[in-house]
């Protein structure tokens, strides 16, 4: 159904041509608010009465075993999947359930998918240039010039993602981890208010993981970040509020120490991992 809808709205897709300051209103509470959200696929409840609140500037980790509904939750927030019931609000003004994918994206919700896709033939700098919020029609794109303001913005992001020394290199030579950072940088170019990051450290080296944790904690405060991850070591190194998802709803919420001592969490998730580790 959602696929049909996105096909039908094809010619209106991505009309967010001008960089708008996100109009999200967070004066009266959280930046993201999900209440009693339920989605079922052929009768199977992938998300089941889910309640979640993310504060402005917060960095939240969401963990949970495979199939817990983490990716589906992100699909709902970004408008890719419509819930059967429930409420999803961005700030106190925007009901995300009444908006389509491009509209939600233009509000300032950026999403990083699991698999990184960067433009390998273009340089790191050019990747960021293309991702920038700008007039994306043909003639303005043809005559666009890189002025000082744009260069400063790209430099700023290069600094944040730590790829400044590689800015003139084709993205194709980057390591897997560096591609993930570049992709986060491409999201940041669009000045999002809320970043959704799905399993960023899968396939990364130990060092790259550390660097990614630094990157994400550095972003918090300036924007809100929701990180889905099932690498426990990584989540522990971020050391922020953790939400444990299980069978489509919240099982526990709190600091890493709190949730990892919760017996239910140990049973469904950490226990399983501990068993794996002892093997």
């Amino acid at each position: 159904m959602s696929i049909l809808r996105s096909l039908a709205s094809r010619d209106r897709v991505f009309d967010f041509l001008v960089p708008v300051e996100s109009p999200v209103d967070v004066r009266h509470g959280p930046i993201l608010y999900l209440e009693d959200v339920t989605v079922s696929f052929d009768g199977f409840k992938a998300i089941n009465d889910l309640n979640l609140t993310i504060d402005d500037g917060e960095l939240r980790c969401i963990i949970g075993p495979n199939g817990a509904g983490k990716t589906t939750m992100m699909d709902i927030i970004t408008g890719k999947t419509r819930p059967d019931s429930g409420q999803v609000w961005f700030g106190s003004r925007h009901d995300l359930l009444t908006m389509n994918e491009p509209e939600i994206a233009s509000l300032g919700i950026g999403r990083k998918f699991q698999k990184p896709t960067v433009f390998e033939a273009l340089t790191v700098f050019e990747n960021l240039e293309l991702a920038m919020a700008a007039d994306k029609r043909i003639l303005p794109t043809l005559t666009a010039r890189i002025n000082g303001e744009i260069r400063d913005r790209i430099d700023e992001i290069l600094e944040i993602i730590g790829l400044k020394p590689l800015h003139a290199r084709p993205a194709g030579i980057l390591s897997h981890g560096q591609k993930q950072w570049l992709e986060i940088g491409m999201l940041l170019m669009q000045r999002p208010r809320l970043l959704l990051v799905d399993e960023p450290v899968a396939g990364m080296t130990e060092q790259e993981m550390e660097r990614t944790a630094e990157l994400l904690t550095g972003l918090a405060g300036k924007q809100s970040v929701v990180v889905v991850e099932h690498d426990m070591g990584f989540v522990r190194s971020i050391a922020r509020k953790v939400t444990v998802l299980h069978q489509g709803s919240v099982l526990a919420e709190g600091s890493m120490d709190q949730v990892s001592s919760d017996p239910r969490v140990i049973e469904v998730y950490l226990g399983a991992e501990a068993e794996e580790e002892t093997l």
Partner: peptide, 22 residues
């Protein structure tokens, strides 16, 4: 031009380019 870079981006990853708003 930047348009040329959008072309190369389209050549290599069309869906991603579309997702960026082009």
């Amino acid at each position: 031009s930047k348009l040329g870079r959008v072309c190369v981006a389209t050549r290599d990853a069309e869906a991603r380019t579309r997702f960026l708003g082009y």
